[in-house]
């Protein structure tokens, strides 16, 4: 069920401000694609344009094409809400719903859409999603406790469970480990490895080692100069990117000589 994503000539705006310019890339199905680059170069912006979360911000818009298995996401007939159901997202800061229990958080995607789910099916879905997020054994005895009561790393895995409970085909993650300690980080990295067999995963990270560890392909974003829009400098298999990048700027960034 995982899908590939084709991006062509994508320009992304906040009002009149062009934040990201001319991106072309193909994200392969059932693989992990990582985006790296200095802050403010538009990684989050680009990621959010892949499931039409970008337009949630007033005045935000895009030009160009994002095609998921032959269907253009920005086609006028396409419902952004339906897009987001198929392309899930995990955010930088864990954000479980504070009014809901762990159980309800996992089911939020269904419950908030007023889908009737049978109790037995719901239980099964919660268990499956929490297992999928490697959280089941830690929380199975306190499913009715508030999601806010978990540790940061657990909260983030709860958010992942919540995202995969909707059974999306693509999972976007925006610096999912940046607010977490090293142990939680490695738990999430392990999880990403496991999820890759079922989902297409796109992850933004600030941490070069993390990109090298988890991803199959890597895209390097950069600003030409301050005030200029961000753009995709290089997109290659991760191995090549970290050993013999095509572009000097990429090499400079990866070896830590800049950014």
């Amino acid at each position: 069920m995982a899908k590939s994503i084709d991006v062509s000539d994508l320009n992304i705006y906040y009002g009149d401000f062009l934040a990201v310019e001319g991106v072309n890339m193909t994200v392969k199905a059932r693989s992990v694609t990582a985006f790296i680059g200095p802050s403010g170069c538009g990684k989050s912006t680009f990621l959010r344009s892949l499931n039409r979360m970008h337009e949630v911000i007033p005045g935000a818009r895009v030009e160009g094409k994002v095609v998921v298995d032959g269907q253009s996401l920005y086609d006028p007939s396409v419902d952004p809400v339906a897009v987001r159901r198929q392309i899930g997202m995990v955010f930088q800061r864990p954000n479980p719903f504070p009014t809901m229990s762990i159980y309800d958080n996992v089911l939020a995607g269904k419950r908030l859409n007023a889908k009737k789910v049978k109790k037995s099916e719901a239980d099964a879905l919660v268990e499956k999603s929490l297992r999928g997020a490697n959280l089941w054994s830690e929380v199975k005895d306190r499913l009715d406790k508030p999601g806010m009561g978990l540790s940061g790393g657990q909260q983030q895995r709860l958010c992942i469970a919540r995202a995969i409970a909707v059974e999306p085909e693509v999972l976007l993650m925006d610096e999912p480990c940046s607010a977490l300690d090293p142990i939680s980080t490695s738990a999430i990295e392990d999880l990403i490895h496991e999820l890759k067999s079922d989902y297409t995963i796109v992850i933004v990270t600030h941490n070069m080692q993390q990109a090298a560890r988890v991803s199959d392909d890597t895209g390097f974003f950069n600003l030409k100069a301050t005030g200029e829009p961000g753009h995709l400098v290089e997109f290659n298999p991760t191995k090549k990117m970290f050993t013999a990048p095509d572009n000097d700027a990429t090499e400079a960034y990866i070896s830590g000589r800049f950014g």
Partner: peptide, 14 residues
Amino acid sequence: EPAEVSDTLSGGSQ
């Protein structure tokens, strides 16, 4: 497939 996708992507949430 495209037809199928298009079907699911144009939900009535609006």
